[in-house]
Nucleic acid binder design. Structure first.
Lengths: 333, 333
DNA sequence: TTGTACGCGTTATCAG
DNA sequence: CTGATAACGCGTACAA
């Protein structure tokens, strides 16, 4: 592949001059510039991003660490990030961490080796300390879907406690009193906080949420099916199911219907996330809207901005609050 | 960030020695090796991937060009690729091309600038010639979901004509004779080939597929809804709908049901792709399994293999054939 | 306006 | 076993 040197030779000028026209540098004669451009074109010249990164000490690329690309939630996340990087002509380095400490660590490590000063990371397995340390090393380090007070201005996150409260509040307003919860078995903060929110709201209304009314399983459709089966097997009475996410909610509806239980008339179901899926299942899922895409774009902008020298404002954080999307799976009792 | 030089100074040895221990080079004293390793650890040394790529002329990274990350199909594709790259410790450079010539071109351009010798690209907008040219430049260039005879050994693709035939054949076997097709309005090869397959099979059975029985729309749920609405509005009679993909099929079912038409008893519906979605909708979607993930893994392996010097075998190609997955949306007539 | 020369962090070749 | 030293492709003071 042609280098800057080849171009210089072909054009009979020096490296410096070529470099200047590449970067729209200031002092180059109009004629020379045109001639060189033409030659670059003919020879199919492409700047070597690696060499550039080396001398510039910055790489025009954004590192991304996600948990699981095939999950619609993360796919949407990736999509949002991609949208803003494309606008800014920035390349994405993508890694998947699958919620395991070592893999996440490894993913970030690789990004570090590539010297990308901007990164958007979704980490649940790494501890606060590690992440805070990272934020110190990487100027454009931004966390998505996680809040750590010490680096609040690098966190783009959803208020899960508020989300839990909103779910519960809505169900209460619809007259539901016998409530079951199906949640994720992964003991990361999200499920814990959502349940906490639900509990708070319920207790405020004088209703207890016994542990027996909560089932834990994998946060996917199958998990939702299993969780509800367990609930049913225990002979639990409930008129409302609050799910950890839309996939679980969908699985829950399937099983309920298989048992001849009408959704939403006998049992109402509410999801969380509002991913694509929510519109596909029947009845259409009432759920909490998690503005993933917007948040992802914000996170990417932030990372890029910090990386290019803008200092993170102290004291701010980027908190989002989920809102109810009313569809068909919840009904007044 | 500490460089190899810093380490050398701190250890009182030369650059070369440090470099040797980093790469597990052959001739270094055991004691020296341990000492240097310890120092690297203390100083938090990380090799600079850019510098490495520069001197090695190879980048240990795989470029990926997809159309639309938020689409479950592409999300699964990405997931498959990620799985194999992770195993091989290779970094992914991801770009999204959104099926527009210029964006796709730009995406590849950027990858080229990063000098990644391995790429898996999903391109529908670029013409054969461009792609063939690219294959000449990039040793590990692999196309996914596209077949170009001249570079057959770099193509991992699905036989869409066979897919179309399979759909039609199955519907015929179930006694359907009045058949409608809802397809993608994007005139890329996939929809054309699938329809061709359908037509061939039908004609073999002495059944014509008039153009009026085909509706084109966007290849998503909404498009499926619109397409079926149009069919209905035209007063078409049909007992079977063959959809371009699962999303369209799902939309179709929704509209049919909204019109009080029973699926599958009055109208059977078949999808294509077998993405997540197919299991979520009700009735569960009978569809054609597109082994995206397997194919993606294959493509990634191939790209990496070619990139590391293995020459593409002449004469071979990587063709996959979709198979029917029977669920609930098709019924015997 | 153009050219020279050095440095970015690594690897690899050749001497010692 | 270890150390100089020359690339790799590019950007940029500093000269001319």
């Amino acid at each position: 592949m042609a280098t800057i040197k080849d171009i210089a030779n072909a054009a009979g000028v020096s490296l410096a001059t070529v470099s200047r026209v590449i970067n729209d540098g200031p002092k180059v004669g109009k004629a020379t510039r045109e001639r060189i451009k033409k030659i670059m074109d003919e020879m199919g010249y492409r700047p070597n991003a690696n060499a550039r990164a080396l001398v510039n000490k910055r790489s025009a690329s954004l590192g991304v660490v996600l948990a699981e690309l095939s999950d619609p939630f993360f796919a949407t996340l990736a999509h949002g990030i991609e949208a803003t990087t494309r606008k800014q002509g920035v390349q994405i380095l993508m890694s998947s961490g699958s919620i395991e400490r070592e893999t996440e660590r490894q993913a970030i490590e690789t990004l570090l080796e590539h010297r990308c000063e901007a990164m958007v990371v979704h980490s649940k397995a790494l501890d606060d300390e590690t992440l805070i340390d990272l934020a110190g090393q990487v100027p454009g380090f931004v966390l998505i879907n996680r809040y750590i007070p010490e680096i609040a201005n690098r966190c783009v996150w959803l208020d899960n406690v508020a989300g839990g409260r909103a779910m519960a509040k809505y169900m209460l307003s619809q007259g539901h009193r016998d409530i079951a919860v199906i949640s994720s078995r992964y003991q990361i903060e999200d499920p814990v906080q959502r349940i906490q929110g639900i509990r708070e709201e319920l207790e405020q209304a004088g209703i207890a949420l016994p542990d027996a009314n909560i089932e834990y399983s994998t946060p996917d459709q199958e998990g939702g099916e299993i969780a509800v089966q367990n609930l049913l097997a225990k002979g639990k009475q409930f008129t409302a199911v609050l799910a950890y996410n839309d996939a679980m909610a969908s699985g829950a509806m399937t099983i309920l219907q298989d048992h001849g239980i009408d959704v939403p008339n006998e049992v109402s179901v509410i999801g969380y996330d509002d991913v694509l899926l929510a519109k596909y299942c029947r009845p259409k899922l009432t759920t909490l809207r998690y503005p993933v895409e917007v948040m992802a774009m914000r996170a990417a902008e932030l990372a890029l901005s910090y990386a290019s020298g803008n200092r993170p404002e102290p004291g701010v954080t980027f908190k989002y609050t989920p809102t109810i999307v009313k569809r068909e799976s919840v009904v007044k009792r």
